[in-house]
Amino acid sequence: MASTLTAPPTVDDRVSSRSLGARLLSRPEVGSLVGAVVVLVFFLIVAPPFRELATTGTILYQSALIGVMAVPVALLMIGGEFDLSAGVAVTTAGLTAGLFSYQFSTNVWVGVAVSLVVMICIGAFNGWLLMRTGLPSFLVTLGTFFILQGLNLGVTRVLSGTVSSNSISDMDGFSSAQAVFASEFKLGPLNVKILVVWWIVFVALGTWVLLKTKVGNWIFAVGGDAAAARAVGVPVKRVKIGLFITVGVFAWFSGMHLLFNQAVVQSGEGVGKEFIYIIAAVVGGCLLTGGYGSVVGSAIGALIFGMTQLGVVYAGWNADWFKAFLGVMLLLATIVNLAVKRRADLR
């Protein structure tokens, strides 16, 4: 403080003294990036198929399956909330579109649109209930999680008589919808799933919103200190409800991929995936307490998860140990992440 008292009120030349390297190091995702490199190098050494270009497509696809949902989950966590219903909501979206199209024999795009409306409503409901009751989002969305899980099974059974939605592969609009949500194309030796492309687009979009727009500033603020944000006029409720709706919209998109990839959706799917999305966001540098994090980080977190999950298979290790390996790799990635962040903070 003493220095500020005596500092001349002219332009301070210390402003520009932070090097690019130091600035990079202070980004939330840098720890996960180092973690990802460590995981990559590790599997490049122990798993020969990892070195082939063709497997890259598979790894990216596996990562995209997690990464697409990790984008809104990361934004929501930065905004200071959780959504435990995100995993089963994806299944709900797929089932809604599949069952609606089948039951009413409509063009599948109608089911797609209905599903979008339903998912927006579910997101808005989560956000509204949270704002209305003031309960922790952990509790509110845990409730939604169970409700959706039950509805998925119950409604599917009532409508289709089985535990999966009816196949819609022979219905109008299926091929065009599949082209949008679940197609693939060749890029040299690479087999690229369209989901990977969407994932990259979503990450770029999410990053832009978070870092470059007014809304992004508000997301940081409502997660960092909601009372402070409200005091300076940030519409806290609107931002938070908007974030939950975003999760709903992304769950819709993921659900459409699920549906058009297989033409049927199993109603019991998705349970437990909400934690994987949250883990991807946390590994990527999001604070569990909100107010800090990055969308790019969530993508790197998803990549670490995808590489580890498939790396164990590529390495040809005894499958009995799969989950244990997964846990160890994730812990290591997180620890590296933390260590790097500590060092960066010291600078």
Binding site: Y102, Q103, F104, T106, W109, A113, D170, M171, D172, G173
Partner: peptide, 15 residues
Amino acid sequence: VLVAALGACSSSGGK
């Protein structure tokens, strides 16, 4: 949804 539903019945498959 309404607009889509009106002119969008599937010619094949479905219930």
